[in-house]
Structure formats: structure tokens, C-alpha cells
Amino acid sequence: KKIKIKIKVYNPETKEVLELEIEVSEEEAEELAKKLAEELEKKGYKIEEVEI
């Protein structure tokens, strides 16, 4: 079964909002969402919402 992940991120420095969407297997979904959120935060983005 495929799971659709939508991530909306906001960069306070540039006032930019990015929306990302990807489909992955159920097993990958939670781990991938967690890794993406961590990487984006390292780059200065503030995570507003992660929906699985």
C-alpha cells in the first residue's frame, strides 16, 4: 500500500513557503517524514505541519 506524505515548510528568513508531496510504502512513510523534517530544520526551515 502506498502512503502520500505532504509537508508544508516555512522559512522565516525568506518568508518562503514550500509544499512537498511524495508517495512511499507504509513502512517507509514515518521514517522518511521524520528524516525530511530533521533535514529541513537543519537548513533553517520551521516545520509547520507533517501529514501522513
Score class of each variant (00 low, 15 high):
N11Q: 09
A37V: 15
L18M: 06
I52S: 01
K46S: 07
E49N: 09
N11I: 08
K15G: 14
E51N: 13
T14C: 05
E27G: 15
L18F: 15
E41M: 10
V50N: 01
E31S: 08
E21K: 15
E41L: 05
I22W: 14
K6S: 04
E49M: 11
L18A: 05
K4T: 13
K6E: 02
E38L: 07
E16C: 14
E23V: 14
K46P: 12
S25G: 13
A37I: 15
P12H: 04
K15V: 03
K6P: 00
K1E: 09
K8R: 13
K2I: 09
E48I: 12
E19I: 12
A33K: 03
E49S: 14
L18E: 03
I22S: 08
L32Y: 04
E30G: 11
L18Y: 06
V17P: 04
I22Y: 11
I7G: 00
G44S: 00
E28A: 08
N11A: 09
T14I: 05
G44K: 01
K2L: 15
E41D: 02
Y45T: 13
V9Q: 00
E41Q: 12
E13C: 04
V50P: 01
E38F: 07
L20V: 09
I47W: 01
E30F: 13
Y45S: 13
I52A: 02
I5D: 00
I22E: 09
K8N: 02
K1P: 11
E21P: 01
V9N: 01
K43R: 08
E23Q: 10
E41H: 04
K8E: 01
V50C: 08
L40I: 02
V24T: 11
K42E: 04
K42H: 02
A33C: 09
E13H: 13
E27A: 12
V24D: 10
E23K: 09
E23A: 09
K15P: 02
K35Q: 07
V50K: 01
K1C: 11
K8T: 12
V24G: 06
I3W: 15
V17Y: 13
A37W: 10
A37M: 10
K6R: 14
K34M: 09
E19M: 15
E26Y: 10
A29G: 06
E30N: 11
T14Q: 05
E38T: 07
K15H: 09
T14R: 08
L20M: 07
L32D: 06
K35S: 06
E21F: 12
E51L: 11
V24H: 05
K15N: 10
K34Y: 06
E51Y: 14
N11S: 08
L36Q: 01
A37T: 14
P12G: 10
A29I: 05
E21H: 12
K6Y: 11
Y45V: 11
